[in-house]
Design a protein around this nucleic acid. Structure first.
Length: 783
RNA sequence: GGGCAAUUAGCUCAGUUGGUUAGAGUGCACGGUUCACAUCCGUGAGGUCAGAGGUUCGAAUCCUCUAUUGCCCACCA
């Protein structure tokens, strides 16, 4: 074995061996409980980003269950990512001086398909280099025909049952993308703007959006507002165009905001739309899908919103209707992907009535049929579900799953205006040749990706064995748009939750807490990091010292630290292999020396604790336990004692337990070592998880404590004396403290008996140890 | 405005249901060419656990309030 572990020398070979061995495919062990994870599909439009690194968590869980002997399936996939991929590709076209309209829908779709297939290859290569042990042979793309088929079935069924409807509703419209987005895909940013107070005749109105006055249909006041009580039922006048509109009363109006009177513009504001529904008001549209003014006086028509605002304000001012103008900072909704200001406007879209469908989801989460890790996300999910609005599922993109609908183009009164069908043949039969057109809009990406748990498993033929899945591990920020919706679809389609457990991780940031991104320059290609420090070092840095649900600060120092750990492990193995010599074959372990009993005890304890930790999704703790076992116990103490007193079988057995414990976290180095040990014929990935195979005597183990001091001090008596002295004063302190406690009446009276007993035992035990130590130091000083 | 999280050693973080003297990694200082490892070994300094109050025999841990930071939701007409 080399003196230093060089990851680059081993990693790709090892990965190949794993793949060729078939270890990534589930075994058929009928007795054991199946374990499965659906991999959150990375978008097939770029390369791996920092968030995907956290899939390490899934790999740890997968490798652990596999070693537990459970049939284990980690099913990977990639996502077509609808409109997002469309942007990416349009940008590429733009660079070539082309647009998607030069290609047309079909050619565009085909080109993007080629592009995503190529990107998918990159992503898979990167994930493999991270050591991810997913079953790549079963990889599913969200545009695979069998996935589309399932998505269509769901849509058709939901439509039939009235959950899906087509409606003219107010939506978050992004003029740049020419598409509507759900609330969850918008962000709010603080921006400076003008706050205008306008003269509406009977009262004054404050607004940040004077350009929408042409779409006003009423003025609303709070019915309890004494200032305006007598005006309810009267009229106000829109300035410039002098249109008369009613003054109505609505509870929603905040008396403290602005002037306490609200211009109601149902066509361009969400709240106003609601007010409009309550009062049966008309909806006027004055902004079109490109964000330009329409249905307004000629001088404003065709202007972009921002310009129109300026111009209308000026006109109001010269008409003497502008009473006040001040600068304020207010929040503006933007599209989270492209940053364009959202225009709320009315549009014909497909919607999913979600309130009813969410009810079983709420039950499932409340009853913990789906369990959250960490548990605080349970309430977060519930809060969101209770107030979710109807979901706009259509997007006017060309890249995605086309909504399976056909529209009538002649006016046959005996036929429905639209017809939902999987195939065009059905539409042709219904409307007759030439009397229909196919919908061109596609589904919101989340409509399909939220059906993956069953759609994927059905497509790969694993549904029976692996549904519902064991674990869904994903990023905290898609709890709402993905996790809760997967539960919703699964309960609707399969009457069963899609997964039993949800593990959420936070953002991976740099040491300053900044999100890792290429544009900020604080995120290199993970392949570069792994080439320098080894994949295992990165994996350990991502899994130890982190808390689920919280952001994870990653630094080069941290990664370097775990690189050192891998090297330590390597050298422990190098020492052990050298010590037992060539031709060694393991045989039954016998515990002889106190050191043997002590390390056996430590091995047992760590196996127990680490197993518990992993079962409870506390991966960090499990990793840390293995780390400490190797370094503090095995390397620093047991190996030191083994130098003078070798127990070859135990040395090797101990090393092997450690290799197994650390394998889910650091699969490459552990496997590399496993292969270096000549008596191994199989791969570590397929070995079974360690069991408590030692029967140590704890009295013997205790004895080792003294030997450690002896050993560390060796030739240097001064150091030994100092070490003993330290131990003695520590024990004396402890005795004093415990005695004080035990003579405290209040403690004896009130503390639970268990605790008191434990303290007494502790005291007795410490006193014995103290005596031993004092004996030791006595021997030393007399000699 | 509502919610969630964080606040523990210079830095990054552990600390499971309240119960030994609050830990680790990293950094720092000092000392080491011991035949597994300088990606190492040993020793050491460094914390009134954000602040205040409370519950308790006992609080980093539970409760209340406050402060700072980050995130999420709603809204700002």
């Amino acid at each position: 074995m080399d003196k230093v572990y060089e990851p680059a020398k081993y990693e790709s070979d090892i990965y190949q061996k794993w793949e060729q061995s078939g270890a990534f495919s589930p075994t058929k062990n009928a007795d054991a409980e199946p374990f499965s994870i659906i991999m959150p599909p990375p978008n097939a439009n770029g390369s791996l980003h920092a968030g995907h690194l956290m899939y390490v968590v899934e790999d740890i869980a997968t490798r652990y269950s596999r070693m537990q002997g459970r049939p284990t399936l980690w099913l990977p996939g990639t996502d077509h990512a609808g409109i997002e991929t469309q942007y990416v590709y349009e940008k590429k076209l733009e660079a070539e001086g082309k647009s998607r309209f030069d290609l047309g829908p079909q050619k565009f779709y085909d080109e993007v398909m080629v592009f995503t297939q190529a990107q998918q290859g990159t992503i898979i290569t990167q994930m493999k280099s991270m050591g991810f042990s997913a079953d790549w042979s079963k990889l599913k793309f969200t545009l695979a025909p069998d996935i589309i088929d399932t998505v269509y079935d769901t849509f058709i069924h939901m439509h039939k049952e009235g959950y899906i409807y087509r409606g003219n509703r107010i939506v978050n419209w992004c003029p740049r993308c020419g598409a509507a987005f759900p609330d969850i895909e918008t962000d709010h940013i603080e921006r400076e703007g003008k706050f205008y107070t306008l003269d509406y005749g009977a009262l004054k109105i404050a607004t940040t959006r004077p350009e929408t006055i042409f779409a006003d249909v009423a003025v609303a006041v709070n019915p309890k507002d004494p200032r305006y009580k007598n005006l309810i039922g009267q009229t106000a006048t829109i300035p410039i165009i002098d249109r008369v509109i009613p003054i109505i009363a609505d509870e929603h109006v905040d008396q403290k905001a602005g002037t306490g009177a609200l211009k109601v513009t149902p066509g361009h504001d969400f709240n106003d739309y609601e007010i409009g529904l309550r009062h049966n008001l008309a909806e006027i549209t004055v902004i079109d899908f490109e964000g330009k003014m329409i249905n307004v006086p000629e001088e404003y028509a065709g202007l972009p919103v921002a310009e129109a605002r300026q111009k209308v304000a000026e006109a109001l001012n010269s008409a003497g209707k502008l009473i006040e103008e001040k600068t304020i900072v207010h929040a503006v909704a933007i599209h989270d992907r492209c940053g364009t200001v959202i225009e709320p406007l009315l549009s014909e879209q497909w919607f999913l009535r979600i309130k009813e469908l969410n009810k079983p989801v709420i039950d499932a989460i409340e009853s913990e049929a789906v369990k959250f890790h960490p548990p605080r996300f349970k309430r977060l999910a519930l809060d969101w579900l209770k107030q979710e609005h109807d979901w706009c599922i259509s997007r006017p993109g060309w890249w995605g799953i086309r909504i399976p609908v056909y529209y009538m183009t002649n006016n046959d009164p005996s036929k429905e205006p639209h017809f939902v069908a999987k195939t065009e043949d059905e539409a042709r039969k219904y409307y007759g040749e030439g009397n229909y057109r196919a919908e061109t809009d596609t589904f919101d990406t989340w409509f399909s990706s939220s059906q993956l748990p069953y759609a994927d498993l059905m497509a790969t033929g694993d549904f029976e064995q692996f549904y519902p899945t064991t674990l869904m591990a994903t990023a905290r920020d898609i709890l709402h748009k993905w996790v809760t919706r997967m539960i919703m679809f699964s309960l609707y389609v399969k009457s069963e939750v899609p997964f039993r457990n949800v593990y959420l991780w936070g953002m991976v940031t740099d040491e300053k807490g900044q999100k890792l991104s290429k544009s900020k320059g604080n995120y290199g290609d993970p392949l570069e990091i792994t080439a320098q420090y080894g994949t295992d070092a990165l994996r350990l840095a991502l899994s130890i010292g982190i808390t689920p649900g919280n952001d994870d600060k990653l630094s080069e120092e941290k990664i370097a630290g775990y690189r050192n750990f891998c090297n330590k492990l390597w050298n422990v193995a190098r020492f052990s292999a050298g010590k037992v010599g060539e031709g060694y074959m393991p045989s039954a372990v016998e515990l002889k020396t106190p050191a043997d009993h002590w390390i056996a005890e430590r091995l047992n304890q760590t196996v127990t604790k680490a197993t518990e930790a992993i079962e409870a999704y506390r991966f960090s703790e499990a990793g840390q336990l293995a780390y400490a076992l190797l370094w503090d116990d095995f390397a620093d103490k047991y190996i030191e004692s083994a130098k003078s007193n070798l127990n070859a079988n135990l040395l090797i057995a101990g090393l092997e337990v450690i290799l197994k414990l650390i394998h889910p976290f650091a699969p490459f180095v552990s496997e590399a070592i496993w292969q270096e040990l000549p008596w191994h014929k199989s791969l570590l990935i397929s070995e079974s998880w360690p069991e408590l195979s030692f029967q140590p005597d704890s009295k013997e183990a205790e004895q080792f404590q003294l030997e450690v001091i002896d050993m560390l001090a060796k030739a240097d008596e001064g150091r030994k004396q100092a070490a003993l002295q330290r131990e003695i004063s520590a024990k004396q302190n402890l005795v004093r403290l415990t005695e004080t406690k035990l003579t405290n009446d209040a403690f004896i009276k009130n503390a639970p008996e268990q605790v008191v007993t434990r303290e007494r035992e502790l005291l007795a035990q410490t006193k014995v140890q103290l005596k031993q130590l004092e004996g030791e130091i006595g021997k030393l000083t007399s000699s």
